[in-house]
Design a protein around this nucleic acid. Structure first.
Lengths: 154, 154
DNA sequence: TAGTACAAAAGGAAAATTTCCCAAAATGAA
DNA sequence: TTCATTTTGGGAAATTTTCCTTTTGTACTA
């Protein structure tokens, strides 16, 4: 799986705006629609492009609160980690979850409507999971940047 | 700006797969293409849908390292915060950046190819910004969940 | 209860885009 | 240089989007 320069430019464009039509992209990259079309199909087939999604404006839909929470487990056995991981995947408020190095904790990015909803999530959905130890919540005051574009280079 | 039940279902679908065609969505939601089409156009016009993007598979494109870094500024004056914010927005490796409550630090989610690239980012692009105090980096061992779907409800 | 006004939905037709096919050009290896 | 392979170009068919008009539904008023 190797990507040439055109591939990278194409992926960059699609990461910014997937609704651009093939002809338009072709013009920008100095090609015709067929090569662009084929490259995109290849990306989809090989899983380089996982999916296409609509990005919503968080403020308008009034899901305006983001909270990062650090969760430590009481046991770090692999089975326990897997069980917690699977449970967290089922919770829609958890938009991202990472197993962190160094401290062996999980970092969760949680989106909720307001503080009340966060309380409901934290005590009702998260703390009740088996094996959960300490939970530390830090609230986001301001979203400075949110990008979906991976920095690509050869 | 109010969203009815159909709107929420529609937004949920579009957040999961924006390439579904209008007819297909209409069938799922027991409507015809026109109302679906009009609602989508309304979302776009009013900014509820900000944009459409392609989501890439991070591992395949070998941008496989994620690092969270906490950055504290030496001065918390509003001008300094704004200057740092603006600088960070220009750095492609920084995919997300938040001003955090409690500690008045920034939390940055950084994506790089490898440890070497991270070193280059950290000391070459981040630490050199004016007013930057302490930088604490925590590396992600495993990505448990990454979702682009906001939990929506009435 | 009927009538009116307004908003939402249905259906169809035109325009635009995607998809696919085949020929031509470019690239690479022998 | 020649052959084989991959990539690109251009056009036609199929699908989808877009827009227009009619119909249905809903809520408010008399």
């Amino acid at each position: 799986m190797k990507l040439d320069n055109i591939d990278l430019q194409l992926l960059e464009l699609l990461q910014q705006d997937s609704k651009m039509n093939v002809k338009e992209i072709a013009t920008q990259l100095n090609l015709t629609k067929t090569p662009i079309y084929e490259r995109i199909k290849r990306f989809e087939k090989e899983g380089i492009i996982e999916k296409y999604v609509a990005v919503l404006n968080r403020k308008i839909i009034s899901q305006s609160m983001i909270v990062f929470c650090s969760v430590s487990l009481e046991s770090q056995k692999i089975d326990e980690i897997n069980a917690f991981s699977e449970a967290v995947r089922q919770i829609p408020e958890v938009m991202e979850c990472y197993l962190m190095g160094g401290i062996n904790d999980f970092l969760l990015k949680v989106t909720v409507k307001d503080l009340n909803a966060y309380h409901h999530f934290s005590s009702g959905k998260l703390a009740v999971l088996p094996n959960v130890g300490q939970i530390k919540s830090t609230f986001v005051l301001n979203e400075i940047k949110r990008s979906t574009v991976f920095p690509l280079s050869l």
